[in-house]
Simulated scan of single mutants.
Amino acid sequence: MNIVIPDDYQDVVRHLPAFDRLSDHQVTLFNDTLTSLDAQVERFHHAEALVLIRERTRITRALLERLPKLRVISQTGGGVAHIDLEACREHGVTVLAGRGSPTAAAELTWALVLAAMRHIPEEVANLKAGRWQRTLGTALEGRTLGILGYGKIGARVARYGQTFDMKVLAWGREGSRERARQAGIEVVASQRELFERSDVLSLHLRLNEATRGIVGNADLAAMKSSALLVNTSRAELIASGALEAALRTGRPGMAAVDVFEQEPVVEDPLLHLPNVLATPHLGYVEKDGYELYFGDAFSNLIAFIEGQKIDDLAAQ
């Protein structure tokens, strides 16, 4: 089978042990992301299978209409919001998805919390420039951590907060709130209360039509001027432009973000704000996680090729 794997930015996929599972097939890897429809068609026109690295390439109806050879899409991780499933069904394209892992994303979230609260990147730059101790950091002990979305990642981040002797609050849908209660986490009365009380607020929601823009201007304005907002989930959870505006007015006082509305980022206003710590969507970019994601994606693809029973998301 002719398999195409786009968006392998670090050129690591072919070095994973899991990649050996595709040794009997013709595999083409690309190390960048194309957004032009014509350029995507030219790149994918010969593909019978696409293995997608998370949401880096969107699969639209317009693209599918020009890829008549495409038979199957095997997705790394479980999210498929970037794939037009209805169009895949109409064009007879099978869509397969694997498992996710909360570990890498939760660890990066906590790394951003520590780095932002203690001004670590700024002080590293200061030291290399010959400047000694220019900021005053803030400890986590005794402060309040808010978790919006108590799922697998949110629960891990909450435990990290407890380990650092923080008070932890949670809010989310009813299932999320119930899981938090069972874990002994205080569930606040409303999303607004979570924003008002948190010294560090971390977003851990899936992006869908119900959660798109769920964080608005009023929520951000309710935050403390000393608070840190952390978003390692999806940029679109926050209303477009709201975070930039809020940071310019000083509520919250800081933000640490790993996600952007347009990726890869060429230009974004957040990158120019002094109270923003930004990373290039590294949440899931970690060796063990990659082996899990691609192991699943390749195994699912081989099962499709061999005619085994599969779970086709486009057929649901």
Score class of each variant (00 low, 15 high):
L237D: 03
A183W: 01
I5G: 07
R177H: 00
V95Y: 10
D165E: 13
L136C: 11
L207W: 05
A180F: 05
F195C: 12
E86C: 01
I53N: 08
R66A: 14
A303D: 15
V113C: 04
V4S: 12
G289Y: 11
A314I: 04
E178K: 04
A155C: 04
H46K: 14
R99T: 03
R118E: 08
R177W: 00
G241Y: 01
H119M: 04
L220D: 11
A18G: 11
G154Q: 02
G154Y: 03
R143P: 09
D288Y: 04
S176L: 00
D20C: 01
L16Y: 09
L277Y: 12
Y160H: 09
L29T: 15
N126R: 14
V259D: 07
R89Q: 15
R99Q: 08
N2I: 10
A116H: 13
T60A: 08
H46T: 13
A255L: 05
A139G: 11
D32Q: 12
E123W: 07
G146F: 07
Q191R: 15
E55L: 03
L237V: 00
I185Q: 02
W110E: 07
E236I: 00
Y160Q: 02
Q26K: 15
S198T: 12
E263F: 02
I3K: 14
M166C: 08
G289S: 14
A155Q: 12
L37T: 11
G241L: 02
A256H: 09
I73L: 02
T279G: 03
R156K: 12
I5M: 11
L205T: 01
L67G: 08
E178D: 06
R89K: 15
N231C: 15
K152D: 02
A111S: 14
L148G: 02
R58W: 01
A87V: 09
D258R: 09
R43T: 13
H46Q: 15
S176V: 01
S202P: 01
A210D: 14
R212N: 11
T35P: 00
A170F: 01
